[in-house]
Nucleic acid binder design. Sequence first.
DNA 1: CACGATAGCTGCATCCAGTGCAGAATTGCA
DNA 2: TGCAATTCTGCACTGGATGCAGCTATCGTG
Lengths: 208, 208
Amino acid sequence: MRYDVGMSLRDRKRARVRQSLVDAATELFERDGYERTTVADIAAAADIGTRTFFSYFASKEELLFPESDRRVQATVDAIAARDPEDSPVEVLIRALYLTGVDSDDLTDRLAALRLRLIREVPAVRGRALQIQLDAQQQIAAHLAEAFPEQLDRVKAGALVGAFVGAVTGAVQVVMEDLPAHHDPKEMRAAVEEATGVALRPWMTTRPH
Amino acid sequence: MRYDVGMSLRDRKRARVRQSLVDAATELFERDGYERTTVADIAAAADIGTRTFFSYFASKEELLFPESDRRVQATVDAIAARDPEDSPVEVLIRALYLTGVDSDDLTDRLAALRLRLIREVPAVRGRALQIQLDAQQQIAAHLAEAFPEQLDRVKAGALVGAFVGAVTGAVQVVMEDLPAHHDPKEMRAAVEEATGVALRPWMTTRPH
DNA sequence: CACGATAGCTGCATCCAGTGCAGAATTGCA
DNA sequence: TGCAATTCTGCACTGGATGCAGCTATCGTG
């Protein structure tokens, strides 16, 4: 996909530099490790001044989550485009499925690196959790708005929290337990089964 | 409660200094704000060298969570002391209720401060989320061990994640709604109600 | 009580992330 | 081409965090 249509020259240039920062960082993080790579290194590799780095990303961690809002937006859109027949739970399931972990996380190089760093580097994990919580809140707000009669904001928060929590909890264990090189299909199946069990009480209306 | 029985003089002294660090920090954070208080300030207020601070707490944030392990331990104990009749879900509900937010978080000065800073300071929120995730994993591991036939580790992860996610998701919303409004009674009631809402779906067997 | 061993304390030097500022450079536009 | 608005960049500085080396206090033993 191209994002640069309709942008001014300035904006296109800016987008290019931004991308080259991400690329350079990916390269360096893989080669030297996250902590041993300094912001100055990254900036130098992308051929900009160190100070300028911070006009593209607010922090070193931010670099690893360059489109975190797109995910949320996609989920929110999926909620907006819901089937009127669907219950909140069904809408949520579909929305999360559409934009789930499986989209590209295992092919994309940055995504793979990110997964590793989330496990290994506390600062990165912390940032990831914050982004996730933020996303949850936004999704919950929209879900509550979409079902004003069936959900108040507290219930929506609980519902979204339960879903995201279940998936995260399961994924966490799977990634720790199974020695890395494991069939993605199998991992996914395990996670789905586990979340199904954990969330059964929420699925008052019957399975898919 | 006293924790200092059976400790050597060295250990008691150390515990005293540790406590005075927490006290000094609480004071300063309340007076000047978290970000404007430096580690050097805290150390000076507690009358130790700046460098020494880091032999008591690994970071500035850590100071705000001085007994995060005790919570986890209590929950784990509650799982160990389970009623053999109870299902995993019931055990989990009881364990969380026993050690829940309601224990002291609203009377204790540090705890109140912590709640505010979690909302206001990203770095603190990040650390809190990490601690929570960590706790989840430990609890899940023990729960799986307690119910070897009914839960594998992945399912336990999903279940605990769903529980904690639901509660935090609901509480988050509640706390946002009543801003800075410091009446502990009211807060507690709101939190309890949110918890109830969040866990209701799992309470198939009737209320207490 | 004395004494050596050990653990803890401290200052110093150093690294790195992140910010404010002011001037230079670049781009957009008339 | 020239002017205005953005953006880039170096510089100076703050604050958190770590390694190190030497000092001090505590501990257990004789």
